[in-house]
């Protein structure tokens, strides 16, 4: 699942090392447009009900955090 996530993230934001970065929001690597694009893709690819309330830095700072969010919002 993580590999699929990294693949999707890299497609949306090429050039970002999603496997290693742990402060994607705090360091300003991802911007609002990236976040919306990522959420749109994750909703579709993982059937995850991610909403505006989930748009917190701690949920998007790393691929692991996004993975945890997806798991919480699936089903």
């Amino acid at each position: 699942m993580k590999e699929k996530l990294i693949r999707i993230l890299t497609e949306v934001c090429p050039g970002v090392d999603f496997a290693a970065e742990t402060a994607l929001i705090d360091d300003g690597i991802l911007e609002s447009l990236d976040i919306v694009a990522i959420v749109t893709e994750l909703r579709e690819a993982f059937d995850a009900d991610i909403g505006v309330d989930d748009l917190l830095p701690e949920n998007f700072n790393s691929a692991d955090a996004m993975l945890a969010l997806i798991e919480r919002r699936q089903g």
């Binding site: 976040i35 919306v36 909403g51 505006v52 748009l55």
Partner: peptide
């Protein structure tokens, strides 16, 4: 936070 995200999503 209060306009763009809610509209976009």
């Amino acid at each position: 936070d209060y306009v763009f995200y809610p509209i976009s999503l």
